[in-house]
Amino acid sequence: MAKKQSSLINMVLTLFVITVVAAVALGFVYYFTQEPIAQVKEKKLNEGLMKVLPAFDHQVAEEVEGVPTYKAFDANEQLVGTAVEVVTDKGFGGDVKVLVGFDTEGKIFGYTVLEHKETAGLGSKMGDWFQEGGKGNVIGKDLSTPAKVKKDGGDVDAITAATISSRAFCDALNKAYATYVNTVGSCVSTSMVILTDETGRCDTLKNVETICKTANDSFTVTFKEEGGQDNE
């Protein structure tokens, strides 16, 4: 067959036809791979959650101020833990994405590094270093005092020769905890709570032990002796 002439109409037509054929073919491939891709993502998320949370039955995903969080429940609808997916830009090579799981008491239950660009062999060790049995174990840590590396006056053992990566990791933990507090609630030890309503009426609660903020923006107050609870 003779080669086509390079007339304008021929050129435009050829390019157009090729592009349309390509687009349709790609649409097909996309259609057939969409489901496996979604499954892969879900599987990866579930595997991550399984690593960082106690055994759970199902999970509910929600966004808290733009941060993805996952609440895990057991078969009796009882909350068993919360996982927070945080990104910190303090890493050595760029953003570090970590999934941090907290148990119901707010202690770290587990973590897994989802994405990082840290130096291979140094900062990249963060996936194992801070796990249980690792040199800088943070599992079980209570983050109401922020995590800091020893160099900065904290108690986290930094990865050898990778202080910046370790700092980034601590930053991720602290960010995750801040979000966790926002979702599940935090408790502050105090002795007195002053309540106000819209009309400006005041009331004082004494003999308070702790006040906790819960997920739906209400407060739970625990008293010292009476042991009564009050919701506002």
Binding site: T19, A23, L26, G27, V29
Partner: peptide
Amino acid sequence: GIQFMQTVAFIL
């Protein structure tokens, strides 16, 4: 929603 055309579109 046709992000999969990204490579083709960008190189053109």
